[in-house]
């Protein structure tokens, strides 16, 4: 068994923490685990991706387009950009947040007005959540990434709920544990 996860978004959105929690949960579940992070030029505002793989034997930290069991995106249209990485039947967990690129602000390109329709069409299995709004309701907008993590966890095999929660406890500061557990459960619908 092997599970491939592609996380995407825009720099500063917290996808690296999500990758860290997945890796910790998979290690605790006894799997071989690799992660790979691509920062681009490390500036704010650029596209960021992270790969996570776990399973019985993992050779390489990268995988091929079309092989992701789950893609998770912290920004609505970034999910479309990487849609072809998802395998048939795979799960897409997408935040409704829209971040306007500078190319749109300068009038050189358009942010698609029909992003919702496009996402619904491209992803038969879609968890489409207003992560920032829901995180704010739970007490802190910064937990948006953990809500998305909860949502994406529904598409992954081999990691039971208690292990996910153990991993969150291990990866966030003690004072934020309870809030993040609530965020995770909200995303996971538990």
């Amino acid at each position: 068994m092997i599970q491939n996860i592609l996380l995407c978004g825009v720099g500063g959105q917290g996808i690296l923490l999500a990758a860290k929690v997945i890796a910790a949960a998979a290690v605790k579940s006894g799997f071989e685990v690799t992660t790979n992070e691509i920062h681009g030029m490390a500036q704010r505002g650029g596209s960021v991706t992270a790969f996570v793989r776990y399973g019985d034997t993992v050779f390489s930290p990268l995988f091929r387009a079309g092989d992701a069991d789950v893609i998770a995106s912290m920004e609505a249209i970034e999910a479309l950009r990487y849609a072809h990485w998802l395998r048939p039947g795979g799960l897409a967990a997408v935040s409704r947040q829209r971040l306007i690129p500078v190319t749109v602000s300068s009038g050189k390109a358009k942010y698609p007005a029909d992003a919702d329709e496009r996402l619904a069409k491209v992803f038969p299995r879609l968890e489409y959540i207003d992560c920032h709004v829901e995180a704010k309701k739970l007490g802190d907008a910064r937990m948006a990434n953990i809500i998305l993590l909860g949502a994406l966890s529904r598409g992954l095999d081999g990691i039971p709920s208690p292990v996910w929660e153990e991993a969150i406890r291990a990866c966030v500061k003690p004072q934020f544990v309870e809030g993040n557990l609530a965020a995770f459960r909200f995303g996971r619908k538990e």
Binding site: G46, S47, A65, L80, A83, H84, P101, V102, V104, A109
Partner: peptide, 21 residues
Amino acid sequence: QPPKPVDEAADLPSRPPMLCA
């Protein structure tokens, strides 16, 4: 023939790296 980006992504605005606010 590797999977190609979906048609719905053909006109997406790019996100070039840029100087921070």
